[in-house]
């Protein structure tokens, strides 16, 4: 088992990674382009969907994570139902 100090270190690393992610998103946000309907061929592909091309695989993943972790939410208003947490 990790000590709390080690956990805090890993927490700090995580915050750094999160900050990096935020910067990526912010930099992207600065360059929003107007995309016309006929330019959305790529965005309409199933591989570009949130959750991936096969929703069932994502659901199985969430099923596992939700049951083994004390936290949940953020993926939509639906879901839950196990009471295992």
């Amino acid at each position: 088992m990790k000590s709390k100090a080690e956990h805090k270190n890993s927490h700090a690393k995580f915050i750094c990674l999160t900050s990096l992610l935020s910067l990526t998103l912010l930099s992207s946000a600065c360059s929003i382009q107007e995309v016309k309907a006929w330019q959305k061929g790529t965005l309409a592909q199933e591989t570009m969907r949130f959750g991936g091309p096969n929703p069932m695989i994502k659901k199985f993943d969430e099923h596992i994570f939700t049951s083994k972790e004390a936290t949940k939410g953020g993926g939509g208003v639906s879901g839950g139902g196990c009471g295992c947490n």
Binding site: K40, L43, A44, E46, R49, F50, G51, P55, K58, K59, E62, H63, I64, T66, S67, K68, G75, G76, V77, S78, G79, G80, G81, C82, G83, C84
Partner: peptide
């Protein structure tokens, strides 16, 4: 009869609304 692993019941709801451009 513990429930260490049980299912998300209606995850399908998210599928329909997550995609900005529904297929």
């Amino acid at each position: 009869k513990n429930k260490p692993l049980c299912l998300l019941v209606v995850g399908s709801v998210a599928t329909a609304t997550l995609s900005l451009e529904s297929v």
